[in-house]
Design a binder for these strands. Structure first.
Lengths: 349, 349
DNA sequence: CCCGGTCTTGACAACGTTGTCCAGGCTCTA
DNA sequence: TAGAGCCTGGACAACGTTGTCAAGACCGGG
């Protein structure tokens, strides 16, 4: 009766008329605060009173409304994760790792994809800030993050991962893209290759630029010239990559080995090489599932995406617990996984 | 000064002293509600007033606190997703699809992994309910979901995906596991195989049981006997799968073909077969990246994980918009992707 | 010039929870 | 047995926002 009356006069939806602590208190014949104490396991309630409250909670199907709790306490116990694409298998372990660390700290994870669109990254990050997430882990799509300055100043801890922040000082956890690419290319050089191509992502992307830099460094260190016709950076859709791979791999002056700048490029390159009828040595950045079963097996420079996520999330929570030192850049090593390189025929030239 | 005073006397953290609408109102010299109107783009504010408010917002770096808004409005504009493992590439497109649909409806996505642990699934789902997510998409780990009854009754829309709910009536979006497995096994039969093994996930998992049923149906339809030594269900860790695959594939009465029950099993089986030195026909449930490049290429029964997620999320939002009809079970077709089947040598026996 | 209407604005309560503070009943000791 | 002190319980305000409602400004027509 009183419920019906309240429903009728209330202008708000009242969460589908769920019972509140007030309802529980009324039913148990105790005060509001006593219910709060029981729900939160606070001391100062006799066993008998607690039992009465518990019975009322069960009977009514009460569940605490965390929205109200959050408003009152000022902490949301949630962190946001913005990445390029939730569907990309490379980011799946990163996603899981961040979730796992958040869980260890009692926080939930809200996440979303930027789809490589800086505007969408911005919208998403700011929406998360409006929700007052305690912290933010971002795989940046854009290169200007000044829009986050007021949020960071207001206390939202922020850690960038995989790529650095643009135009603001912020923590970042990266792979050693330069060193990894240099090592991968050096591996090809050590196997006698002198004409090595580079096929990578758009040059505006930090990781792509760093990997290209590593390629050039390895070539220079070996005293090998780089024909710019061997180098191609751009979108990683299979169409472009296929065309560029064919261009670099055929015709006069074709390369004998290829270094590919990420997992998507590598997958397409493997297909092109398989159709080529001529052996080409291939080393790719990022490991691939089943890469050991391809013929020839693909040697890769592997990043540990899970470790990237874990490190970033742990840094985030250290900030949340009060760490105040200057923005830090953590660089994680890559690992060269040599597969079937013995079978790669050294180049003739 | 007044700020400092408030900070000192306030017992609450006040979100790192962020400005509120009250602060904006004071600075702009307008009422609280007018700020609210400007922030929400409500009509009835003169251009001049709006400008003053906007200036104050910019100057103070104000951003609306959605926690308070949510509390007031009773809708969180967020949905929860509980799945087995965020790091599993199979679920990545599902995750993304749910996010995409949520985004189209202006909602954020909170997600987490159950790690195949029913208790953890329960904790996570109930935590999301406490946050008052508008709806829940669940890939169930457990087989008893009665714990959700009060939540569903209280208005949290819930859709199960990949596997059905246990002991409650709820919407579910599934793949046609039975039909897909039957078709895959029939493909092997059509190529002359009579001794076909089945290597799958734990029998308690609905999808594993359905796929086994499909296998048996295809064998029965072809009039072929099933030797129980050819069938193995259990955990999908590489150790067990490898041992079982070797057992089924070698020795007297060994099978000439294998049907594998999911992507993880298939990957391990491919490795075992590669080391066997004898050709074995393989059809697997779930597609694999680069499966076309393996030798022999692996024929698969592919599910569209993205479509599963999209369908589930759309059903969820239809419920949120008021659809009241009885719980529905949607079954999506699978697709047989034949690869290099010409190269699979038919069995001798 | 006055009345009715529209338009803009702000005061106020409420959403459901938790922190503060005080009151009343009890036990323990002198 | 009385007073001090502890334990339990509840009234109240506040978190930051939005819905309701009413008041004032302004306009035009009679």
């Amino acid at each position: 009766m009183s419920d019906a009356a309240r429903t009728a006069r209330s202008p708000q939806p009242r969460y589908g008329n769920r019972p509140t602590m007030k309802d529980v208190a009324a039913r148990a014949g105790v005060g509001l605060k006593t219910v709060s104490r029981v729900v939160n396991g606070e001391p100062g309630v006799t066993a008998e009173t607690e039992r009465r409250v518990q019975d009322a909670i069960t009977a009514l199907g009460f569940r605490r409304n965390d929205s109200a709790r959050i408003l009152r306490k000022g902490r949301t116990a949630s962190v946001g994760l913005v990445l390029e694409d939730l569907a990309d298998p490379f980011y799946a372990p990163l996603n899981r790792a961040v979730e796992e660390v958040a869980r260890d700290h009692g926080a939930l994870l809200i996440n979303g994809s930027s789809a490589e669109d800086p505007e969408r990254e911005r919208e998403l990050a700011l929406a998360l800030c409006a929700r007052r997430v305690d912290g933010l882990v971002i795989v940046p799509a854009g290169d200007d993050h000044r829009y986050l300055e007021p949020e960071i100043a207001a206390g939202i801890a922020t850690v960038f991962v995989d790529r650095p922040a643009g135009r603001i000082a912020a923590d970042a956890v990266l792979s050693d893209n330069f060193g990894g690419a240099r090592e991968g290319v050096a591996h090809l050089v050590a196997h006698g290759h002198r004409r090595i191509g580079f096929l990578g992502d758009r040059p505006g992307i930090h990781t792509a630029a760093e990997r290209l830099r590593g390629y050039r460094a390895a070539m220079a260190a070996a005293g090998l010239p780089v024909d710019e016709a061997w180098v191609s950076l751009g979108p990683t859709d299979p169409g472009r990559v296929r065309a560029e791979a064919e261009r670099i791999l055929t015709g006069p002056g074709a390369v004998t080995a290829l270094f590919t700048g990420n997992n998507r490029v590598t997958a397409t390159a493997v297909r092109v090489i398989a159709g080529l009828g001529r052996p080409v040595a291939l080393v790719g950045f990022d490991d691939l599932e089943l890469a050991d079963l391809l013929s020839p097996a693909v040697t890769v420079v592997a990043q540990d995406a899970g470790q990237l996520g874990r490190t970033a999330a742990e840094l985030l929570f250290r900030r949340l617990e009060g760490a105040q030192d200057a923005a830090r850049r953590v660089e994680l090593p890559t690992r060269l996984i040599v597969r079937g390189s013995g079978e790669i025929p050294p180049a003739a030239g």
